[in-house]
Design a protein around this nucleic acid. Structure first.
Length: 350
DNA sequence: GAACCGTGGTA
DNA sequence: TTACCAAGGTT
């Protein structure tokens, strides 16, 4: 039996049931995956675990059953539904992509990798994944799992990210022309469950006999990567201003950069040397009370420590343009990123 | 190529 | 507690 088919048959026996996945038995009997589901799941799964994605995927499918439904939605509702999942540019590109495909592709995703690559939020990995998983086209899908599995399989010593270019042709070569989509998912499942970053279960791997990394005893050291840089710690303050009814004043963040387009209570700029207790930064003069616990949160490239302050607005206070009051039972439905939810929880508002 | 862009689970 | 890591894309 060919090496690659060993992995495909392993997948046939061990495929996980996932809300967006068409089971191998169904693929074999001719069932076609829904490209909308494949696309949505692949966007959500970018740098995000299966466990974190599951419920978001179900909610999105329930709220917007078709691509047309999503294209006709309001961006604000997409951001609200995405809140907590992270990498928020994905949500905005998701919406742009839905509208673009609806308008320029008659509501149907293109099947070819090169055309998918032109769509917002779809890069080399996702284009290949959609083309092969949704449409059965032959494509070399290279994600972090594939890089890890193949770098071990061939004992590749090249460091990431240069390794990716080396893995791509190897993946193209090993991917079968029959069921290429299932093969891609098989390698990714293998990477997620057996060929794991730490302590890989080489003893039960379908590729144990052909793995050069295992033969050389270096499998668990691959793929090689440059050492990570130390994350700086930035600091700031959050101000939970409430009205007489206990509603919290919110606003929308800027259009670009960190947490772009998401909602937040009033916050200061976050900087390395920022103060944690300088009330000259407060939006209004009031009896600000600091919550007992600061918020600690880690983003992709820095740590954040934020003090949280609470006060009630004076009776005559009018909210500035672009700001709005959100009642306690409405806050869960706002487009609030996790770090902002932490601030609200620190103030016992949620 | 490298910086930027979230979050939750895990060891 | 801290650091690593996950089905990457954009600039």
């Amino acid at each position: 039996m060919q090496d690659n088919l060993v992995v495909l048959y392993w997948y046939d026996r061990n495929s996980r049931q996932l809300p967006w996945r068409t089971a191998p038995a169904d693929i074999l009997s001719g069932v076609k995956p829904d490209p909308y589901h494949v696309w949505l799941s692949e966007i959500m799964l970018q740098q995000t675990t299966v466990a974190a994605v599951k419920n978001y995927f179900k909610l999105f499918i329930k709220t917007w059953p078709t691509l047309a439904d999503m294209a006709n939605a309001e961006e604000e509702d997409i951001l609200k539904a995405w809140a907590g999942l992270g990498y928020y540019s994905r949500a905005r590109n998701l919406y742009k992509c839905a509208k673009f495909v609806q308008l320029h592709h008659n509501g149907r995703f293109p099947e070819e990798e090169e055309r998918l690559l032109k769509l917002p939020g779809i890069g080399p990995y996702t284009a290949a994944a959609i083309s092969t998983i949704a449409f059965g086209r032959h494509a070399a899908v290279v994600d972090g799992n594939v890089e890890r599995v193949l770098s071990r399989r061939h004992a590749l010593l090249t460091e990431l990210p240069a390794l990716k270019a080396e893995v791509k042709p190897l993946m193209a070569e090993v991917t079968p022309h029959d069921r290429p989509g299932d093969f891609a998912q098989a390698i990714m499942d293998l990477g997620a469950t057996i060929c794991t970053p730490k302590s890989p279960a080489c003893g039960i791997c379908p590729w144990m006999d052909v793995c050069e990394g295992r033969k050389q005893g270096i499998a668990d050291t691959l793929p090689r990567k440059a050492p990570k840089k130390v994350k700086p710690t930035r600091r700031g303050m959050a101000f939970l201003l409430s009205d007489a009814r206990g509603r919290i004043l919110l606003r929308k963040r800027q259009d670009k950069g960190l947490l772009a387009g998401m909602s937040e209570p009033i916050t200061t700029h976050w900087a390395d040397d920022a103060a944690m207790a300088d009330l000259s930064h407060a939006p209004i003069t009031a009896d600000w009370v600091r919550t007992p616990k600061d918020v600690k949160h880690t983003f992709t490239h820095f740590h954040l420590e934020m003090s949280v302050w609470q006060a009630q607005a004076p009776a005559h206070y009018d909210e500035p343009d672009g700001y709005w009051w959100s009642a306690p039972d409405e806050l869960e439905g706002e487009a609030l990123p996790t770090v902002m939810m932490k601030a609200l929880k620190a103030g016992s508002v949620i």
